[in-house]
């Protein structure tokens, strides 16, 4: 049976685990390098990217996560998307696994956090429900550009990129773990295989 790890250094890992369990998937917390050995795919949750990056370095997870992502599926939400990127226009540890650049807090401070329906055409692969996805953006990063093997999965009506995919790697600037809609989680499970 597929086992998904959720990086549990800091942030919204409990919410991800709740959704995974609801759709019948075994989910475990990942805090140390050895926890990566038993899982088939990894979610890096929302949180503070500087904190998650620092703890990953300090507990010897950084290179292991990089190696994991070269072979297996990883999905980053918000801070997790920043962590997967190759450039965040700032000095902080980044896995540089995806050919995307991000701009942190691109929409402004907390007071500008917002909710919005977003069209994600790729979700049709996992659900006949073609309703837009209700996306929650909290001090969200912007995916400023995609290049190389990365492709755009979703944009806001004004064209700003909010989700991208590169093979088995997935990045969303918003938080599906804060909703009751499990379609992005099920889409990620398809990438895990």
């Amino acid at each position: 049976m597929t086992k998904i790890g959720v990086l549990a250094l800091q942030g919204s890992f409990r919410e991800h685990i709740t959704i995974l369990k609801k759709i019948g998937v075994e989910a475990v917390e990942v805090r140390l390098p050895e926890h990566l050995e038993e899982i088939d795919g990894l979610i890096i949750p929302g949180g503070e990217s500087t904190t998650i990056g620092k703890l990953a370095v300090d507990f010897g997870l950084f290179e292991k996560l990089r190696a994991f992502g070269r072979e297996k599926a990883i999905w980053g939400t918000c801070a997790g998307a920043i962590f997967l990127s190759k450039d965040a226009h700032r000095q902080q540890p980044l896995l540089e696994l995806m050919d995307i650049t991000v701009e942190r807090n691109a929409y402004g401070r907390q007071i500008a956090s917002f909710e919005m329906d977003v069209e994600i055409p790729a979700l049709k692969k996992v659900s006949p429900n073609d309703a837009p996805f209700h996306a929650i953006f909290i001090r969200a990063p912007l995916i400023a550009s995609v290049s190389g093997g990365a492709e755009i999965l979703a944009t806001l009506p004004d064209g700003r990129i909010v989700a991208a995919q590169q093979g088995h790697l997935l990045a969303t600037a918003f938080h599906p773990e804060l909703t009751n809609d499990d379609r992005v989680h099920r889409y990620f499970l398809k990438l895990v295989g």
Binding site: L9, G11, R14, G46, C78, S113, F114, I138, R139, L178
Partner: peptide, 16 residues
């Protein structure tokens, strides 16, 4: 700035 985004920021601070 809904109650969901207000509460949501605190959810992102968890474990910190």
């Amino acid at each position: 700035s809904t109650f969901t985004t207000k509460k949501g920021l605190a959810q992102m601070l968890k474990g910190g």
